[in-house]
């Protein structure tokens, strides 16, 4: 069942007077519950595509339909509200808020939802438990290792039970062993919770957890590799 449909997506932006076009007429479909790895050289449009899927950026031309909603028509505010409901985003450099504890970082997305404090507490605790970091709930980011920070970031991304989990090189700043553990965690989220995951990566090793690998080049899809 198709969750994400990109129809002839083009994205332009300007750097000074120069027009940059990272995506040119991209057509793409991603199935619900799949684990997709986006690969390609620098400048191929991977991160631009991820930002469009996240509703952080908007398409210049074409249609972007996610879960039957035409998000290319959404206003800035509606996109923000849609993001809160549908998207979980994992950054390469974790991007935890330094003055908040692990628990409080995970709680942030839930502040946008109409749920009471008890339910918030339950969901944050569950998310921290799911990523195996429940014992560190009261620690600040500076008191955590890189792998632990990324686990907290994943907990933050999944706590509101989003439709799609987007990950921008989630193991890019981690050693091999920790990176493997993080990829195992993402895979288990896909398998146990049926989460749809779209991950940008430069590392071919990490694609082994994905069931679909998309190769982008010069803003276009040049190869789609389905592994299962």
């Amino acid at each position: 069942m198709t969750l994400i449909k990109c129809k002839q997506i083009t994205k332009h932006y300007y750097r000074g007077s120069e027009q940059i076009t990272p995506l040119k007429g991209l057509d793409l479909e991603i199935q619900r519950g799949s684990f997709v790895a986006l690969m390609g050289p620098s400048g191929s449009g991977k991160t631009t595509l991820l930002n469009l899927l996240a509703g952080i950026d908007t398409v210049s031309e074409g249609e972007l339909i996610i879960d039957n909603e035409q998000i290319h028509n959404f206003s800035k505010n509606k996109l923000a509200s849609w993001r809160a409901d549908h998207i979980g985003y994992i950054f390469q450099l974790y991007n935890l808020v330094p003055v908040l504890t692990a628990y409080e970082n995970v709680e942030i997305p839930l502040l946008l939802h109409s749920i009471n404090r008890n339910e918030r507490h339950e969901r944050v605790s569950d998310a921290l438990e799911n990523v195996g970091i429940a014992d560190r709930y009261n620690h600040y980011p500076r008191q955590l290792s890189g792998g632990q920070e990324q686990r907290v970031a994943i907990a933050r991304a999944i706590v509101s039970n989003p439709t799609i989990l987007l990950a921008d090189e989630p193991t890019g700043d981690l050693d091999r062993e920790t990176g493997t553990a993080i990829m195992d965690l993402l895979k288990s989220l896909q398998e146990k919770q049926g989460q749809t995951i779209v991950m940008v990566t430069h590392d071919p090793q990490t694609t082994k957890w994905a069931d679909t690998v998309l190769h982008l080049e010069k803003g276009q899809l040049i190869e789609q590799e389905v592994r299962s």
């Binding site: 923000a80 509200s81 991007n95 808020v97 330094p98 942030i108 997305p109």
Partner: peptide
């Protein structure tokens, strides 16, 4: 600046 970008990514509106 970065924290605010993260907040927006998580669904906070600019306002």
């Amino acid at each position: 600046v970065k924290d605010h970008a993260v907040f927006q990514t998580l669904g906070f509106t600019g306002w």
